[in-house]
Amino acid sequence: MQHYREHIGADDFRTFPRQLDGKARSRHHAEYAGWHRSACWNGRRFDRFPEYIVRAQSLDDVAHSIDFARAHGLSVSVRGSGHSYAGCFLRDAGLLLDLSALDRIEIDAEAGTASVQPGVGARRLSAALAPHGLAFPTGHGGEVGLSGFLLGGGLGINFRAWGDISAFSVRAVDLIDADGACCAPAPNNTRSCSGPRAAAGRGCFSPRSASTCNAGRCRPASPRARIAANWRASAS
């Protein structure tokens, strides 16, 4: 994506939100300040202000937002659940793409997998897996989003008991690239993108639209885990 800045007319921005299932707010909108304050889970205030905030309600919203940003030379930052102590997703100028409303969970109990969208948090995933006798080593807080947690490697609860860090249990990832195109897993379990887009690393822009993870059978809690659970229950 080119990072040059073009003037964005009022008509351009009036047209853009009409393409969305969700909502978009510019810095000049009355609701912008409230959206900005509530973006970070810990209530910290940051003096970094995106020019636009988009609260996506669908994958089409993600694609439309990327197209709008590309057409006007805006950089894009992505918010999953907002569980970043430093509010890393807040950037001056540009467009903040909020994916927290994309929170669908699909469980395949027979295959032992869970497909989750980026807004899904640890508590909701655990609750969805439990009736099937399944579990996944999530983050240490119930509101920690799976998107950022897995991108950071996934040092989750009891991850050593499950064999390794949680990211190693990711079976497939659906991405939307900088051209606004969806890259879904191919049958051979690789991305169906070719060329440079198939690579990932520093400078790679690809919002994650869904992750499919292996879920394991529930195991008896260790004595240390039971003590910690009892302590949390008594503290609440």
Score class of each variant (00 low, 15 high):
Asp103Pro: 00
Glu143Lys: 07
Gly148Leu: 03
Gly112Gln: 10
Glu143Gln: 12
Ser75Tyr: 04
Ala178Pro: 07
Ser222Phe: 05
Gly80Tyr: 07
Leu96Asn: 06
Gly203Val: 00
His72Leu: 04
Asp60Arg: 15
Ala221Cys: 07
Ala114Pro: 04
Asn158Met: 06
Ala161Gly: 14
Glu110Pro: 01
Ala199Asn: 15
Pro137Tyr: 00
Ala233Lys: 12
Trp231Pro: 00
Ala101Asp: 12
Arg197Gln: 08
Phe16Lys: 10
Cys193Lys: 05
Gly153Ser: 06
Ser206Gln: 15
Asp11Cys: 00
Glu6Met: 09
Ala101Asn: 12
Ser194Thr: 11
Ala128Tyr: 12
Ala215Thr: 08
Arg45Asn: 10
Arg18Val: 01
Val62Asp: 05
Asp61Pro: 01
Ala56Gly: 09
Ala10Gly: 13
Leu146Ile: 06
Cys193Met: 02
Ile105Tyr: 10
Asn189Asp: 15
Arg14Leu: 07
Ala69Gln: 09
Ile66Glu: 01
Tyr32Leu: 02
Ala109Leu: 02
Ser58Glu: 08
Ala10Leu: 13
Gln57Met: 07
Pro17Trp: 01
Glu106Arg: 07
Arg25Ala: 13
Phe68Gln: 04
Ala24Gln: 11
Ser126Gln: 14
Thr138Gly: 05
Leu129Ile: 00
Ala235Phe: 12
Ile157Ser: 04
Ala235Ile: 04
Phe89Thr: 01
Pro50Ser: 08
Phe89Gln: 07
Gly141Asp: 12
Pro131Glu: 00
Ala181Thr: 09
Leu96Gly: 09
Ser222Trp: 03
Leu99Ile: 02
Tyr4Arg: 11
Asp12Ser: 13
Asp164Ala: 08
Arg219Ser: 04
Gly216Leu: 05
Ala127Ile: 04
Arg44Gln: 13
Ala122Pro: 10
Asn188Ile: 04
Asp164Pro: 00
Ala186His: 15
Gly34Gln: 13
Phe46Gly: 03
Gly203Tyr: 11
Asp61Val: 05
Gln19Thr: 15
Ser169Thr: 08
Leu129Ser: 07
Ala93Asp: 15
Gly112Ser: 10
Arg226Thr: 05
Ala235Thr: 04
Gln2Pro: 06
Phe89Arg: 04
Ile8Glu: 08
Arg5Lys: 14
Ala198Pro: 07
Ala225Thr: 09
Thr15His: 14
Tyr85Glu: 03
Leu155Cys: 07
Ile176Pro: 08
Ala69Leu: 11
Arg219Glu: 04
Asp67Pro: 00
Tyr52Asp: 02
Gly73Lys: 09
Pro196Ser: 02
Ala228Gln: 09
Asn188Tyr: 12
Lys23Met: 06
Ala186Asn: 13
Arg5Glu: 15
Gly180Ala: 12
Ser169Asn: 11
Thr212Lys: 06
Val76Phe: 11
Ala135Thr: 13
Asn230Thr: 04
Ala93Tyr: 12
Gly94Asn: 11
Pro187Phe: 09
Asp11Tyr: 08
Leu155Val: 08
Arg124Gly: 02
Gly80Arg: 07
Asn42Tyr: 13
Gly141Ser: 10
Pro50Tyr: 11
Ala186Asp: 15
Cys213Thr: 05
